[in-house]
């Protein structure tokens, strides 16, 4: 052991490797020698698509211990060929940003502050308000007796950042509920 330790001494390594100025292999630390990129130590790499603009660049999402540790371009993509812009390159921060909200917040009428709500309770409250507003603002027909079958009391804005499947459920549910004022960024 002692002998090996002695051989690990930088000055000995400098002499033994010929790196007398101590600039190369003789000075690498154990940590340096053990380096491995987190892309190679990740548990898995998942193919994804950048969430910002509509170019649709391919991304690879590296996951370690169920946390996203790295997002970078997918070289397989014929659209982006592995490249990303600054926003796409910041995607990992979008996911893991300390500023991100992960709890439900609720502001009561006239209140000056947020409070917490249980997620299930919040969805239930939204459902109640949805049903109540729909009843209160229902328009069965117009002045000439033509069918309207709708509410103008509920509106929605958003969808351009969401998945096709999500837009589909949003449009389907709102339309069935008679809410027509469903809009997104495509109008803007």
């Amino acid at each position: 052991m002692a002998r090996r330790s002695f051989l690990q001494w930088p000055v000995v390594r400098q002499v033994s490797t010929g790196d007398l100025l101590g600039r190369g292999p003789s000075v690498t630390s154990p940590r340096t020698k053990a380096l491995a990129p987190r892309t190679s130590t990740a548990d898995r790499a998942v193919q994804s698509v950048c969430p910002y603009c509509a170019v649709g660049c391919g991304q690879r999402v590296y996951v370690k211990d169920e946390k996203v540790v790295q997002i970078e371009g997918d070289p397989d993509s014929p659209i982006s060929r592995g490249r990303l812009c600054p926003k796409g390159s910041a995607s990992e921060q979008l996911v893991n940003s300390p500023g991100r909200q992960t709890r439900v917040l609720y502001r009561a009428p006239r209140s000056t502050r947020w409070e917490h709500l249980d997620l299930a309770a919040a969805i239930d409250m939204v459902a109640d308000r949805f049903i109540e507003t729909r009843r209160r603002t229902w328009q069965q027909e117009d002045a000439e007796g033509r069918l309207l079958s709708r509410t103008m009391g509920i509106a929605s804005l958003g969808g351009a950042t969401l998945d096709n499947e999500e837009n589909y459920l949003i449009k389907k549910l709102f339309t069935a509920a008679g809410a027509v004022q469903i809009e997104n960024q495509a109008r803007i």
């Binding site: 998942v46 994804s48 698509v49 950048c50 969430p51 509509a54 170019v55 649709g56 999402v61 996203v68 997002i71 659209i79 995607s91 979008l94 996911v95 991100r100 909200q101 992960t102 709890r103 439900v104 917040l105 609720y106 502001r107 009561a108 009428p109 006239r110 947020w114 709500l117 997620l119 919040a122 969805i123 409250m125 939204v126 308000r129 998945d163 096709n164 499947e165 999500e166």
Partner: peptide
Amino acid sequence: DIETEVFFLPAATHVEKAGSFTQT
């Protein structure tokens, strides 16, 4: 004076759900 009830419901990011985008 503002009567509006506000619900903030946190959303999942693009890597926390599966689905399709249609690009340009």
